[in-house]
Amino acid sequence: MGAISKARSQAADAGKFVADWMEHRAGVITIMEHFLYEPVPKRGAWIYTLGSATLFLITLQFLTGILLLFYYVPTTDHAWNSIYYIMNEAYFGTLIRGIHYWSANFLLAVIGLHMAQVFFSGGYKAPRELNWIVGVVLLLLVVIIAFTGYALRWDQDGLWATVVGMKIGSYSPFVGAYTIQFLMGGDTIGPATLSRFFAIHVWLLPAALAPFIGIHLYLLRRHGVFGDEMEYRERMAKLQERQRLEEYEEYEDDGEPYVGRRDRADRD
């Protein structure tokens, strides 16, 4: 036995030992297999990349957001300067902030496409209603995160978008004034506004977003992905044939009550 093949078998043994050890204590292999070997529809695989692209872009948001926090300062005196530092002085600052900015833009576009795809393929139909609802919640969270993130730059664009947003909010029936005072942290825009938008953008809504993403994925796995009717045409053909046969059978022995066609009666 050569030295190389001996080392290889030793490494394989060590790997197997670690895998067994982890499997015994944490069930890691079972979980991995459960995640990785789930059967998914063969047709329409490319459609599903819309969802995973959304997940990927949100992950980029979390990653670069955490990185930006190493330099960003959420005060009216320093916010603009700290971003100026990130853009001009920090190593790869342009790239890190660029990824945060551009993936946010792509994210909203991809979410729109993802949503349109689910709508037009009827992916929200029973038993997947709940996942549609969770998806709409995710959409709202992402839009509000995008809006609050805009203010953090404390530049003209961010400030005036916030002013207009607050003014729009002030027109809400009954609760308008209270809502915007809560968001601005007072009766005018100022340092409190930046602090609050920072808290909402960085902690509150991402913390809410993460579990909803988890629920979205769990429900997806529970009911399976649904991209298009095309993936089910053989099963639908079988169903239609059975229904035709049953109809024929009923026609043959007229008068006999037939119990096996409830699902058809439901539809009509």
Binding site: F35, L36, Y37, E38, P39, V40, P41, K42, R43, A45, K125, A126, H223, G224, F226, E231, Y232, R233, E234, R235, M236, L239, D263, R264, D266, R267
Partner: peptide
Amino acid sequence: EENVFERPDETVAF
């Protein structure tokens, strides 16, 4: 009609 969309015709491992 309820379960027709629960399992696609052809599947592939994730």
